[in-house]
Amino acid sequence: MQIVQVLAYGILLGGIYALLASGVTLIFGVLDVVNVAQGAFLVFSALFTWQIWDMFGIEPLLLIPVMGAMMGLIGWAIYRGMLIRVAPQGPGMTVLLMFGVALTMEGILNLGFGNKFKSVTPAYFTQSLNIGEIVLPYPQLISGVLAIVVLGAIYAYLRFSWAGRALRASSQNRDGAALVGISHKKAAGFAFAIGAATAGVGGVLLAIMYPIFPATHYEWIARLLGVVVLGGFGSIPGAIIAALLLGTMESFAATFVPQWAPLFFYGTILLILVFRPQGIMGSKTREDVA
């Protein structure tokens, strides 16, 4: 029965990773930028959730749309204000820029919240759903299910809306999309906003599951990069599969070999990038035409 328990846990965890990583992979797909600040976005949202919950005692889950919108706006501003300038200088510089953003956010949070763990503990924090012998704590259950719902909504939006089609067009062929009237800058700003908004939503979900402090953003970005790399940069379905895989693996590792659990992510990044750089679902492109 322990196996089923661990598996259920892993799938819930994977659902959350899938939501978080889909933001990173969407941003990469459209902008060609590895957003290493996504972890900082998450922690930023989580700590603000804590602050509001601490001050007003409001149900944290109600903050999901608020934090999503807030981070989306911040993301859009970062794109228009900074990234748009640096993008032509190539991947090395954009990564450094986003690292600078991550450090700045960490510094701000350090000054604002101090270097202490903060936990959001609503009433259901310690309760769990028992199905036979399987115990599912409500925070994990709620977060996992909500993550999958939000992710499904985003995926459907990208798949079926006009704006989503524009984004996909722009990510596949920037110049071609421009010729049929899709402004890359607008598409990129929109993609960055959605990507950051997933971190806003994810931050709320993390806040009710884990204690958070500013420097934990490194752990999160390490996990997200692991998922994105395994799934194939830029592929949302790939990220979802990879997230479920790694979530389950982490859940098993945490049960049986806890101290090695983080190595699964780093090890995945290393192995995949070395032996199959395009990931599970990514496509290899022709490079000779340049």
Binding site: M82, V86, L96, G100, L103, T104, G107
Partner: peptide
């Protein structure tokens, strides 16, 4: 220190 390094990094890259 983290804050200042972050800001300097952003400014230099930009």
């Amino acid at each position: 220190r983290v804050l200042i390094m972050g800001i300097v990094l952003i400014l230099v890259v930009m």
